[in-house]
């Protein structure tokens, strides 16, 4: 199998409060390549810069310095409008706090990225139902987020991330707010997306066991990549 890099980060720096006395350098020259179909875990202490890195990968934020190509598109040169389009079509976000729209039901939440992609109403509903069925939420489609448990919410959020069939899924501590049994189920879902649909997945996690299940573990400390090794597999 040919290895094609989808995420290419070179010499990425990120600083906050630039030009003020409390200027903060969060990323110190990160080099990272992720290949198509890879399942990567990023681990590291709280405050080490994992989320900052993830936001840059996800085109939500721009690095202060460095170069970044996603699918060979120069993300530094891309304009905001292009970045929204890339976020919409190529990337699926899964957050620790789910971030579902509280006023609308599960199906409407899953439809949302398709709305911005200009998918017609009937196709949106069809696809949303399909995705909710895939994550095992077919009988909760018309429930509001507040009527769902944490694990159920996260499954809806994963379905939403898959809405426009993105190549890459970025998950920032998706099991962080769940108990280990529910976390397990969510993790299984990621494995399925990886194996069955060949998605490239970058996962931030605090759980050593879950990290070991991925193909590659990247350790970040104080904004530097300090270690990189293969996962030991499922225990």
């Amino acid at each position: 199998m040919e290895h094609k890099p989808v995420i290419q980060l070179q010499d990425i720096y990120k600083r906050f409060y630039i030009g003020t006395p409390n200027e903060l350098q969060v990323l110190n020259g990160i080099d990272l390549n992720v290949e198509e179909g890879e399942f990567v875990a990023i681990v590291g202490q709280s405050g080490s810069g994992k989320s900052t890195l993830m936001n840059i990968i996800g085109a939500l934020d721009r690095p202060t310095e460095g170069s970044y190509h996603l699918d060979h598109v120069d993300m530094i040169a891309a304009r905001d409008g292009e970045l929204s389009k890339i976020r919409n079509r190529k990337i699926g976000f899964v957050f620790q706090t789910y971030n579902l729209i509280s006023r609308t039901n599960a199906i409407k939440n899953v439809e949302m990225p398709m709305l911005y992609a200009g998918v017609s109403g009937r196709k949106r509903v069809e696809r949303a139902k399909e995705l909710l069925t895939m994550v095992g939420m077919e009988d909760r489609m018309h429930h509001l987020p507040e009527e769902l448990s944490g694990g159920q919410k996260q499954r809806v959020a994963i379905a939403r991330a898959m809405a426009n069939d993105p190549a890459i899924i970025l998950a920032d501590e998706p099991t962080g707010a769940l108990d280990s049994a529910t976390g397990r189920k969510v993790m299984d879902l990621f494995h399925r997306l990886h194996k069955e649909q060949g998605k490239t997945i970058v996962l931030i996690t605090h759980s050593p066991e879950l990290a070991e299940e991925t193909e590659r573990l990247i350790t970040i400390k104080d904004g530097n990549i300090t270690g990189e090794r293969s996962g030991k597999g499922r225990q």
Binding site: D80, K85, R87
Partner: peptide, 12 residues
């Protein structure tokens, strides 16, 4: 909500 929508690809 606005942040989420933007993260999921809503243009300004």
């Amino acid at each position: 909500e606005i942040g989420t929508r933007k993260a999921l690809g809503a243009p300004n």
